[in-house]
Structure formats: structure tokens, C-alpha cells
Design a protein around this nucleic acid. Structure first.
Lengths: 132, 132
DNA sequence: CTTGAGCTTCCAGTGGCTGGAATCCCATAT
DNA sequence: ATATGGGATTCCAGCCACTGGAAGCTCAAG
């Protein structure tokens, strides 16, 4: 099957698939006319990468996961280690964003938001107000 | 004052300050020897940008905020609009990450994580299991 | 036989820096 | 006077993960 079909079935744009091939993440057979030719197993791998990426794994992590995916004899502990590490990262990111949300939320709440120039948001960003 | 001092006082690396100048976000006077020369007002602006960036505003948004910061007569509503929009983005990001966290958390929970090859994480990523 | 869609490659740009090289300036120690 | 070390300058390249666009090929349908 051609790249367009593989793209539709995997949820990845053709450009991205070519890019993945370029960086050696996935390979593809070539048909007689020079077109890339994907098997359904290839599509599985593409979708695997698509899902992994959408779950926040970096491309390098996807490379690791793919090799764990391919290696039918690896220990599940190896996979769990990567996933757990990523879970920690996600938690840290959520915590950070929640902190930001709170800070910015306070600023927005205290801003009357009318035609007057007086603005606690600007004051907060410029460091004028004492930290509470 | 030199760029190093301004950097220490604003919390931005010198490289970043030069970069900001390069893209026209901030300007700097030059001393006789060609060194950049920062006033304390310049440092205020640098810190303003530093805080805005750390709160998740893009450089382009910082450009807007800076002009609102400089314009002593603008309505606080203008600032509030930008901040509220950003608040929405942060909320969306948190929601997205929370979703990811949950999904990945389930996979990790169900993985026994021992020497056996059977792994629900890989199965989940490959789409083998029905979405529950 | 033409048209249009889809495929190929390659080059360049995105955002927001960051690292490194080569060179210059300045203050201090010898 | 000079050597040294730290900081400043410029410019070029690279990071991540794509994405857009140009120029040219192939293929199926009308």
C-alpha cells in the first residue's frame, strides 16, 4: 500500500512518515516505481508510534519502545520502567502547569478589566507587588 | 551596566537577552566600547519578559504585553483579555495532560513488570486491547 | 492524451533558545 | 610592560519534531 493509505490508517501525515524514515525510526519497502510500499505490519508500527507520541513519548523513546515492541522476549519490566519514568514527567508537568494556572488565575481575578489603566496583571508581571 | 549584570538581575541568560534584542523584542544602548549598556528600567523590562515567559506566554505575546506595559494609558481590559486567553490554553493543556496521565497510568498499573514478556503497555500502544 | 491526484526528493523555516569559535576589551598581578 | 583571566562582541550551527513548498515523476480516469 502507498504512503497515503498508510497515513490514513495510522493517523500520521505522509510528511511525518517520511521524516520518521529519514531519521531511521521506521523503514519501508519500495515498489517497482520507487513508491514506498507498506504492509499491514508496517501500519501497526506506524500506529504504535502515533499512539506513543500522542502519549507524550519523545521520538527517541519511541525508538526504544519500538524495539521492545519488536523483541517478543523482552521483560515487561523494561517497558514498565520507561512508562513509569514518563508518568513521572507528566506528573511534574501537570504540577508545574497547575502552579502557573494558579498564579495567573490570581492575577486575572484581581484585574477589574475595564477602561482604566490600572492593572494588577501588569503589576504582577513587572514584580511591583510583593509576592503573597 | 553590562549584559552579565543585567542577566543576573533579570534571571535571563546573556545569550537569551541578545537573542531578544536580535528579534527586536528589546533594545539596548551601547557604551563607547561597543558593549551593551542597560539601565535599571531596561532590567525591569527584562524581568517583565522573564516572568511572562515563565508564566507560559510566547515571545510574541510578550511583545504585546510589553507594549501594554509601556503604554501607561491602555485599558486593563486589554491585558486581561490576553491573560484570560492564556489561562484557557493552560487549562486545556492541563486537561490534555491529565487525560494522558490517566491512560498511561492505567497501562502501567496493569503491567506486572517482571521478567515475563507479556506487557499490557505494549499491547495498549499497539492498539491490541479494546479501548475501555 | 490530458488532467489531476499522489508520489518522489530536497531545501528551508518554525520557536526559543543554546553551544561554540574567533576576536576584542578590561582589570589585575607580576 | 605584559601575561592572564573573565567578560564582551559577532556569527554560524544545532536542537526537536515536524511542516511547507518547489520541481519533477507516475498513475488512473475521462
Amino acid at each position: 500500500m502507498n504512503i497515503g493509505t498508510a497515513a490514513r490508517q495510522s493517523g500520521l501525515p505522509p510528511k511525518t512518515i517520511r521524516y520518521y524514515e529519514d531519521i531511521g525510526l521506521l523503514t519501508a519497502d519500495r515498489a517497482a516505481n520507487g513508491y514506498r510500499d507498506y504492509s499491514s505490519e508496517d501500519v501497526h508500527r506506524l500506529r504504535f508510534v502515533q499512539r506513543s507520541r500522542s502519549l507524550g513519548f519523545s521520538v527517541e523513546e519511541c525508538r526504544q519502545l519500538l524495539s521492545l515492541y519488536t523483541d517478543r522476549d523482552r521483560a515487561s519490566a523494561d517497558v514498565k520502567a520507561i512508562a513509569t519514568e514518563k508518568l513521572g514527567e507528566i506528573d511534574r508537568k501537570i504540577a508545574e502547569l497547575t502552579g502557573l494556572r494558579e498564579m495567573l488565575g490570581h492575577l486575572v481575578e484581581n484585574c477589574h478589566g475595564d477602561a482604566r489603566p490600572d492593572c494588577p496583571i501588569i503589576d504582577g508581571l513587572s514584580g511591583k507587588t510583593r509576592d503573597h
